[in-house]
Computed example of a mutant assay.
Amino acid sequence: MTRKKRRLMFVLLGLLVLFTAVGLTLAALKDNLVFFYSPTDVKEKHIEEGRRFRVGGLVEQGSVVKEGEVVRFVVTDLVNRLPVTYTGLLPDLFREGQGVVAEGRLGDDKGFIAETVLAKHDENYMPPEVAESLKASGKWEHGPPSPGQ
């Protein structure tokens, strides 16, 4: 085998190892990606039951019902609504009319079963997709700036 052929073999072997490493990395990351959707996205896209994702929007006024540790509420983007069930302690900032991001899965009744709930007090701390979705609806405006801004 000549030096040129040997060098070509090493380059090809190196590329094969590189492509294998990239493929394995992408396959591992695919399982850990958590996508974010608004209630309208959840309604329009057919998300399979059991797939983990995040949903965000505003907690609908008058929708919070507490039954011991189980809390039921509705997340809305002011266009569509999605019922959410969460078991556990809610964050201190959680209240009706405030922004929320919940991570979990769709249940068999098309309700959302949250495993984690994050409460946000305005769109400055809200994922940009939620803030844009709410602003695009034309029914929500940014409130006065909080002190220190």
Rank of each mutant, 00 (worst) to 15 (best):
K139P: 04
E129R: 07
L118P: 00
H142A: 14
H121R: 10
G68D: 07
F112T: 04
K5P: 02
A102E: 11
R7I: 15
N124D: 08
L12A: 15
M126S: 14
V117A: 04
G68T: 07
L82G: 08
V84Q: 06
L18W: 03
A102Y: 02
S146C: 05
P147Y: 13
S137Y: 05
D122F: 05
E60W: 02
H46N: 13
F10N: 12
V59F: 05
A119Q: 08
V101D: 13
T40P: 05
S146F: 14
L89W: 06
R6M: 08
T25R: 04
V84I: 13
A114Q: 09
E115S: 10
Q98G: 05
L26F: 00
M9P: 02
R6W: 04
K66P: 05
V70F: 08
V34P: 04
V70A: 12
R52A: 02
D108M: 02
T87P: 00
F19S: 14
E60G: 03
K66H: 07
E129F: 06
L15H: 04
V55I: 15
K5Y: 13
R6L: 12
P39L: 08
E69M: 03
G99V: 11
L15F: 10
F19K: 05
V70C: 03
P147T: 10
V71G: 01
T2S: 15
S38L: 11
E132M: 13
G57E: 05
L58S: 02
A131I: 04
E103D: 10
G56L: 01
G56A: 03
P83A: 12
L26C: 00
E115H: 05
L90H: 03
M1Y: 07
V55A: 06
L26V: 00
K139A: 12
P144I: 03
Q61K: 15
G97R: 10
G62E: 09
G97M: 10
R105L: 13
V17C: 13
E96V: 11
K66E: 15
P127D: 12
T87Q: 09
L13I: 12
A28T: 07
E44K: 14
D77Y: 02
G148W: 11
G148F: 11
G138T: 09
L29E: 04
V101P: 08
R3M: 12
G56T: 03
G62M: 12
G143Q: 13
D122A: 09
P91F: 04
R54P: 00
M9F: 14
G107P: 00
P145A: 07
L134K: 12
P91E: 07
M126R: 03
E60M: 12
M9H: 14
V22L: 15
W140D: 10
E103Q: 09
S38F: 04
T40Q: 13
L33E: 00
Y125E: 13
F73W: 06
A119C: 09
L106C: 05
G107C: 00
V117P: 04
S137D: 06
E115Y: 01
L106V: 04
